[in-house]
Simulated assay, not measured.
Amino acid sequence: MDEIRKVLIPYDLQFFAKDGEGGEKTEEPTSKKLSDARKEGKVAKSKEIVNGIALLGFFLALRLFIGFAGIRFKEIFNWIYSIIPDIVRMNGSGLTIVTTTTLFRNLLGKILIILLPFLIMGFITGFVTNLIQVGWKPTMKPLEPKLSKFNPINGFKRMFSKESLVNLIMALAKLFLIFYIAYIDIKDQANNLFILYDIGLKTALSFIFQIIVDTGMKISIVYIILGFIDYAYQRWKFRDDMKMTKQEVKDEWKNTEGDPQIKGKQKQKMLESSQRRMMQNVPQADVVITNPTHLAVAIVYDNTKDEAPRVVAKGEDYLAKRIRETAKENGVPIVENKPLARALYATVEVDETIPPELYQAVAEILAVIYTERNKAG
């Protein structure tokens, strides 16, 4: 046994796994992924809350507008009975397709007037509930046809998924609670139901209507409570589905911010190109002011183009050395002035004129150089 223990070498299986490829989604979703999902119409919301509040709104509308609906229904029956003699008279000669269509159109218009308050209540409750859940950002993406929706394999996966199981449990819970609440309400009113034969029709209808509305509102409230539970689950599920692998986070960052290596190479190339252009200006400089070895600043003054001396090249360390070497090769004077070199390097960029506070110091150096150049000439 001891010999076997000596042969066994402990190792970590995660060492052989490639980071992010087929890995678990452990990273929280980025704002970009959530924004893209929102554009696709993928949001966390519960249809149960919408259905529950819409159902509650329907029963409230029923309680508020039942008188209005009753009067309208009575008017419809009176209208139908009033036109029966005319219909009987027209049957055989005057009852045409046009006449029949007109009658049905009038009947449909009267029924729509009765249904209008309930339709408005349903629209308002559905719109406001969805707006509170997901906010206002309409998109047509979910309505676009996708072939993946017709894939039978994906259909079977959805049928036997965890979401389908949760939906089944919610449906069974709703059915149980609906039947239980209805049973309790009817049981409590059982004694009153037995006397329906002994009371007037109007009183009996009012009593039945009261039972239906009260039971419906209780069912709606339970439905809303289940909806809030479902909403909490949908938010958790949506967040869990939106999680990303480490590789996905890296890929998204590269796509949005750019590959750091590529950006670094591009920046390096731009810097090299800028330095080449700058070094080409050194031979035309009038003077190079140094630190003496740490900094170097090349200055040119053309009174026909510039109002003041202009910096055409500057650098530190290795670049300062190259500027000095190029200046020597092309016979450009090199002047050591530590304070002036530091001031020029810190305050003036390439192709910019020097500030007024440095005019005097630079002018003195240029005056000496021009004097020596005239003597040599």
Rank of each mutant, 00 (worst) to 15 (best):
A341I: 06
E336C: 02
Q275C: 01
A173T: 11
E28G: 07
I9R: 13
P85T: 08
F118S: 10
A313S: 14
L319A: 11
I120G: 07
T215C: 12
R310T: 15
V43R: 14
A313V: 06
L205M: 10
I80D: 09
T30M: 03
M159W: 12
F176V: 13
F16W: 09
N291C: 00
L319T: 11
G155I: 07
G22S: 10
T293Q: 07
S161Y: 05
K243T: 05
K187Q: 12
P283R: 03
L205S: 01
G23R: 03
V88P: 12
K202V: 04
N192I: 01
E40G: 02
T100S: 11
Y11M: 13
M121D: 07
V288R: 03
N191P: 09
A232P: 00
I299V: 14
L115D: 03
S46T: 06
S31D: 13
K32Q: 04
G109D: 10
G20E: 06
I9D: 07
L340A: 05
L62F: 10
K141L: 05
V50G: 09
M140G: 14
E257C: 03
L8W: 10
I120F: 10
T102A: 12
S82W: 04
F207W: 01
M121N: 05
L201Y: 02
P339A: 01
L177Q: 09
K375T: 03
Y370P: 08
F16V: 07
L64H: 12
D302Q: 10
F160S: 08
L143S: 14
V312T: 11
A327S: 11
S46N: 00
L55I: 14
R277K: 14
T99R: 12
V50C: 09
L201A: 01
L143D: 11
M217P: 03
N191C: 05
M217V: 04
Q268V: 07
P29F: 08
P142H: 06
T99A: 13
Q247V: 00
L193K: 04
N281I: 00
I225M: 06
I334V: 13
F207I: 05
V7A: 13
A182Y: 08
L177N: 05
K33M: 02
E48C: 00
H294W: 07
G227P: 08
A285I: 03
I178D: 02
K246S: 07
G109V: 09
G227M: 00
I169V: 15
A313L: 02
E257I: 02
T371S: 13
T96L: 01
A69E: 00
I114K: 09
I211A: 02
F15K: 15
A296G: 04
R89S: 15
I53K: 03
I53V: 15
R72V: 05
E372Q: 12
P138M: 12
I111F: 14
K218T: 00
